[in-house]
């Protein structure tokens, strides 16, 4: 039988950006990990790159509504994230894979994903089908009824991705999703990302520049909690010169941008590369720019 499509699913989004941060400040403990960050992300797969301690995980946690922003403004899926806002609507459309993926070891994969679907307030009747679909998509169908504690690291990561995509999220946040995946699984995972990214905003943080080059259309580079550069993968590759460190064009581009940032030559405003998205970008600003 065909799945019925509800009116809510076919309704066009009424927001310009799935993620829209202006001068966002977020703390990890007392440390200011995200420092006046401006970011606008629309539909597609975005790779979040940055050196260790750049604030990637804190940014992910803030966007996942785990950490409250301590300054600036943040809109997710068109809804403001403020002190006492009701986040349920955002959270229903959210998929999140934390860096440290905690799970209940006695649960089977199916039970765990079902529990997460329940937590995301999915309609009761839709849960079993959605769970099976999510498990199929990450290639764990043969192990759906095995307990989580018997899975290997790569399978756990895939179970984590399954729970993140079970509700067909509008905003999917994956923190280091490729850790522990073998090369073949990484290729499969990139396929999955591209597929999901056709109608959903995916932000995936990673240390592996090659993952970004292969799976992401758009790259966000942050360092010390600030946006260093945003543009598409080709532009990132073009940034690299012959003298930069790295084995591929993308890696050289990454190294060149970081070097320029550390040398103080690249400012956030100048480094924003997306000419193609420039006009759209301004449109989004104007639309959401009214004081809340």
């Amino acid at each position: 039988m065909m799945r019925a499509v509800s009116a809510a699913e076919t309704a066009p989004p009424v927001y310009a950006w799935a993620v829209h941060a202006e001068a966002l400040v977020a703390r990890a403990g007392r440390h200011v990990a995200v420092d006046r960050l401006d970011l606008a992300l629309g539909t597609g797969v975005h790779g979040l790159l940055g050196p260790n301690g750049a604030g990637k995980t804190t940014l992910m946690r803030t966007l996942a509504t785990v950490v409250r922003p301590s300054g600036g403004r943040l809109h997710l899926l068109g809804e403001p994230v403020t002190g006492r806002a009701d986040l349920r609507r955002i959270r229903r459309g959210l998929g999140y894979l934390p860096q440290h993926f905690g799970f209940y070891p006695r649960f089977t994969v199916r039970e765990f994903v079902e529990y997460m679907a329940w937590l995301k307030e999915m309609p009761k009747g839709a849960i079993p089908g959605a769970v099976q679909r999510a498990i199929d998509r990450v290639g764990l169908a043969g192990r759906a009824d095995r307990r989580m504690k018997t899975l290997s690291g790569g399978m756990l990561r895939r179970a984590g991705i399954a729970q993140a995509i079970v509700n067909d999220p509008d905003l999917l946040l994956l923190d280091e999703p490729t850790v522990g995946l073998d090369p073949e699984q990484r290729v499969g995972f990139r396929e999955l990302l591209r597929e999901i990214g056709t109608d959903c905003c995916v932000l995936t943080s990673t240390h592996l520049v090659e993952d970004v080059a292969a799976a992401c259309a758009d790259v966000v580079l942050i360092s010390d909690g600030r946006l260093v550069w945003q543009g598409d993968t080709q532009q990132l590759a073009d940034r690299g010169g012959a003298g930069d460190a790295g084995d591929s064009a993308t890696e050289r581009g990454y190294a060149a941008l970081l070097r320029a940032h550390r040398g103080g030559t690249g400012t956030t405003a100048q480094a924003r590369d997306g000419q193609a998205r420039g006009g759209q970008d301004r449109g989004g600003r104007d639309r959401d720019g009214s004081p809340a």
């Binding site: 946690r61 509504t65 785990v66 349920r88 905690g102 209940y104 937590l119 729970q163």
Partner: peptide, 10 residues
């Protein structure tokens, strides 16, 4: 162990 996921659930 899954507190971070529970915290982001609706």
């Amino acid at each position: 162990p899954a507190w971070e996921l529970v915290a982001t659930g609706a």
